[in-house]
Design a protein around this nucleic acid. Structure first.
Lengths: 131, 131
DNA sequence: TATTGGCTTAGAGCTAACTCTAGGTGATAA
DNA sequence: TTATCACCTAGAGTTAGCTCTAAGCCAATA
C-alpha cells in the first residue's frame, strides 16, 4: 500500500504519517528497493491504533514509550500493561470532566432557551446575567 | 480578592489568569485605585466557568467569542445559545471517542493480564503480537 | 529521451496555549 | 526612609503536534 492510499484510508495527511514514523510513534514501515514506503497489514494496524489513541487525546510522548516497549518484545509486557492501565485512568478522568461540562452546558442551554421563549423575564435584565 | 488568592482557589497560575484577562477570555477584572486587580464574585465565577470549559477541551477562541457575545448583552442570547449547543455536540463526540478508546484499552489490558498470568501462551511469541 | 508525477529527506515554519523575563510601581514593615 | 514584597506590563520564549518547503530521486508515459 502506498502512503497515499494509507493517508486516504485513515484520513491522516501523508506528512503526518511520515512524521509519526520519523519520531517512532509507529515502527519502521517496510520499503520497496527504491526506498518508497510499502505499508503492510502490520503498519496499517499500527496507524489505526495510534490514530485511535491520539483521537482520545493520549500524548505522543506516552505512545512513543509504548511503541518502544513493544519493540523490545515480551519482557516488556508487564510495563506495557502498566502504561495502558495508567492511561486508561487518565481517560476516565477526562471523561468525567467532559461529562460535568456537558451537564453544565445543558443547564445553561436550557436557561437560554427559556429566555428566548420569553419565560424567565428576570434574566432579561443584563444585570442579572451570570456567566 | 487578590490574584494570589484567586490563583490558589482555582489552581491556575497568576500568569494564566492575567493572560486570560488580556486576551478577553474573562471580562475585565475590577482594580484598586493603584491598578491592582481586585477580584469580585463575578470575576471569580467567570474564572471558574472558563476553567471548567477549558478542562473539557473547549478552545480559547470559541470561549472568547462567547465572552464577547455576553458582553454585548441580551440581544446575543440566541447566538450564545447556538454557540453552546454546537460546543455541546463537540463534547459529545469527544466523549464517544474516549469511550471507544477506553474499551479498546480494556481489551488490551485484559490480554496483557492473561499473558502475564501465563495463559495465552500463543501471544508469548513476539511474532504473534499485534499493536 | 525528456518530462511528468508521486515519492523521498532534512529542516524550517506554524498554531494554541501558556510561561517566563525584565523592568517598573506602590503599600507596608524596620 | 529605605527596603521588601506583591503586584503590574509588554513582549519574548516554550512546548506539543503537526505542516510546509526545497531539493532531489525514480518509474512510467509522450
Amino acid at each position: 500500500m502506498t502512503i497515499e492510499e494509507v493517508s486516504k484510508k485513515y484520513n491522516l495527511t501523508q506528512d503526518t504519517i511520515r512524521y509519526y514514523e520519523k519520531i517512532g510513534l509507529i515502527p519502521e514501515v517496510p520499503r520497496t528497493k527504491s526506498g518508497i514506503r510499502d505499508f503492510d497489514e502490520t503498519s496499517c494496524r499500527w496507524i489505526e491504533f495510534i490514530k485511535c489513541m491520539r483521537s482520545a487525546g493520549m500524548s505522543i510522548e506516552v505512545l512513543i514509550e509504548y511503541v518502544t516497549l513493544f519493540k523490545k518484545g515480551r519482557e516488556t509486557v508487564d510495563a506495557r500493561k502498566n502504561l495502558l492501565v495508567e492511561q486508561r485512568q487518565k481517560l476516565l478522568e477526562k471523561q468525567e470532566e467532559i461529562k460535568a461540562t456537558i451537564e453544565r452546558l445543558d443547564y445553561k442551554i436550557n436557561l437560554y432557551t427559556e429566555i428566548v421563549q420569553g419565560k424567565r423575564k428576570d434574566f432579561l435584565e443584563d444585570i442579572n446575567e451570570q456567566p
